[in-house]
């Protein structure tokens, strides 16, 4: 092959590859813009503040208040993180600092497998086990009646779904704490647990925050698994055992039916936009924190 053709190939590939790279960066902008464009009609009709703070959701009267859906999303996400964070943290500490090599080798792939299970399967599992258990055994102790399809069920299913994400990021973060630092602490007479608490955890605070934020954004955007177990009634929940209706479920349940009402589509796109913006910001921040940790090590 002649030298010129080789150089030509090189330049041609460089151009195409560069364009593809720029295009993929542009995707983020395109998604944001596309959703904004679609939701602009409703933003012209009402102020954003009104949309976010009103509980009135009457598509046929052109009233779209997202407040109960936002509360729904916050409720399931909050419950999920409250359950998942301490458990994941303890689990990650165990795997990183205490578990014998062989157990570690079993646990890490097992947790990876957990992350591969499709959301809909989590949903089926939730319907089969969590929902009836809450309805029959837990809720009766606290409230008169609950079907089991409630905020708590959504939170538990979500917690199980974010375990693998948080644990795997935490393991990476703990890995960046220099071994010498731990050895120094141990050789000063600190116990294993003191070392973990005062050296490893202290050094990992930004990483733990980043993992939590990533966990939150995963939970807040999860659709099908939550939709299947949380009841989907648009109201402000008064207890863990009330139904909630998170934003992603709102989109998934109503898309397709809404074509007859023009503002309806716009409202649903706005909820997608809200999710996109929140998750974009959360992800960007936590990734930047994680990059910094990576560079430090």
């Amino acid at each position: 092959m002649s030298y010129k053709i080789r150089l030509l190939k090189d330049r041609l590939s460089a151009n195409i590859f560069l364009e593809l790279s720029l295009f993929s960066i542009l995707t983020v902008v395109l998604i944001g813009y596309g959703l904004y464009y679609k939701s602009s009609p409703i933003l012209q009709q009402d102020t954003l503040w009104h949309l976010l703070s009103s509980t009135e959701w009457k598509p046929f009267k052109n009233e779209f208040g997202f407040f109960s859906y936002i509360i729904g999303s916050l409720a399931v996400t909050g419950i999920a993180i409250i359950i998942a964070l301490p458990l994941s943290l303890l689990c990650a500490i165990y795997i990183a600092e205490y578990a014998p090599h062989r157990i570690r080798q079993i646990l890490v792939p097992l947790i990876d497998l957990l992350s591969g299970i499709p959301p809909v399967v989590y949903g089926v599992w939730g319907v089969l086990t969590i929902v009836p258990y809450i309805g029959d055994h837990i809720a009766p102790h606290f409230v008169d009646y609950s079907s089991g399809y409630c905020a708590l069920a959504g939170g538990i299913v979500l917690a199980v779904m974010v375990f693998p994400l948080i644990v795997s990021i935490l393991l990476e973060v703990f890995d960046t704490v220099p071994k010498e630092l731990k050895e120094a602490s141990l050789s000063l007479g600190a116990t294993e647990w003191e070392t973990t608490r005062k050296v490893v955890l202290k050094k990992s605070v930004p990483g733990i925050i980043a993992a939590t934020v990533l966990g939150i954004s995963r939970a807040i955007g999860e659709t099908l698994a939550v939709l299947m177990v949380c009841g989907n009634l648009p109201m402000i929940p008064h207890s863990l055992f009330d139904s909630v209706y998170p934003l992603p479920a709102l989109i998934a349940n109503n898309y397709g039916d809404m074509m007859s009402i023009p503002m309806y589509e716009s409202a649903l796109m706005l909820s997608a936009l809200i999710l996109f913006v929140i998750i974009f910001i959360f992800n960007a921040i936590s990734r930047l924190i994680l990059y910094r940790i990576e560079n430090r090590s």
Binding site: L35, G221, F276, F282, N283
Partner: peptide
Amino acid sequence: FDVLFGIPSIVYGAF
């Protein structure tokens, strides 16, 4: 890509 990785599938679906 790290950020896109975190974008939920419902948003991709809507887009």
